[in-house]
Nucleic acid binder design. Structure first.
Length: 285
DNA sequence: AGCCTGCCCTGCGAGC
DNA sequence: TGCTCGCAGGGCAGGC
């Protein structure tokens, strides 16, 4: 899954089941996702309470009372589903019928309710990890990660500085989580279109002036997408199973050959860093 | 040092 | 209908 808006939508969907909840039981249906689960993973979670469910870039972070942080990344196809106590039959059916259930959390929520949360990831690009208290910023997942795009830490001056001298195309630079956290292929394409900046433009040639345009646009695109519940293409759904809606608002993503919303010319596609870029060659310079 | 390519893995739709 | 191919929202190791 995906980019910041989708991860944020999933985080919000998990809050009722996780935040303030006691993790009673953890079951692993296989020993690994992309990487092996941490040693003694279920035992280190069971009996822990989740103080807070946060997000950093495309990661969801559960702060555990015992001190460790549970890091969750959904990769490309990871999906959390929250099932209430009232649907045990439904849950059993899903577990029996779904070959891709890789982890299952049973929680006792703060208001006395119970929830079953399961994580399934067909493509297994996702992973979970445990990080010691106080080591979040220095752990391998977050060391060097760029600012949160929706925070005040992300501003035109900072972006211009991060891009200075960079020889890669702006498209690739914005996908780099060290430049800014949480952006992925969809929202970079959309933001560059709105900013009328060519994805091929060298990052070094996106100076402060263009950053003053680009930064507010990145924030706007992400905020709109969060409000819409993210974008559902193939794998993504929120933790309650609902679909995001922002895919209906794409200007360029996935629209190769279709008319540009601004000039009516055809939307183009090219491959950069092995990924599809969608853009309007007429509007974006 | 920093950039790019290839790879991890499975599923799905398009095209034959 | 059934096969193969290309492609998919991410991140990392390795090579240059």
């Amino acid at each position: 899954m995906p980019e910041l808006p989708e991860v944020e939508t999933v985080r919000r969907g998990l809050v009722p089941a996780f935040e303030g909840a006691l993790i009673e039981k953890v079951t692993l249906f296989r020993p690994d996702l992309r990487f092996p689960f941490p040693n003694e993973f279920p035992a280190r979670l069971e009996g822990q309470r989740v103080d807070r469910l946060a997000r950093r870039g495309k990661y969801i972070i559960a702060d555990l009372t015992g001190g460790e942080h549970l890091i969750m990344h959904l990769g490309m196809s990871g999906r959390f589903t929250v099932l209430g106590q009232g649907t045990p039959g439904h849950y059993a059916h899903q577990v029996a019928g779904d070959q891709h259930v890789h982890a299952h959390f049973q929680t006792h929520t703060a208001d006395g309710g119970r929830a079953d949360v399961h994580y399934a990831d067909p493509r297994r690009f996702g992973f979970m990890d445990l990080v010691p208290q106080g080591a979040l910023e220095t752990c391998r997942h977050f060391a060097g990660m760029g600012p949160e795009p929706l925070s005040d830490d992300f501003h035109p001056e900072g972006l211009a500085e991060a891009l200075r001298g960079k020889r890669s195309p702006i498209k690739s630079a914005l996908l780099d989580q060290k430049v800014v956290a949480g952006l992925g292929n969809i929202y970079v394409c959309e933001a560059l279109f709105r900013a009328r900046i060519s994805p091929r433009r060298l990052a070094a040639n996106v100076g402060l002036k263009r950053c003053r345009t680009l930064v507010p646009i990145i924030k706007a695109v992400l905020m709109e997408a969060v409000v819409a519940g993210g974008s559902s293409l193939r794998d993504y759904a929120a933790a309650d199973g609902s679909m995001g809606m922002f895919q209906h608002h794409f200007d360029v993503y996935g629209r190769e050959g279709e008319p540009c919303m601004a000039c009516g010319g055809p939307v183009s596609r090219l491959v950069q860093s092995g990924r599809s870029t969608f853009f309007c060659g007429h509007c974006q310079r």
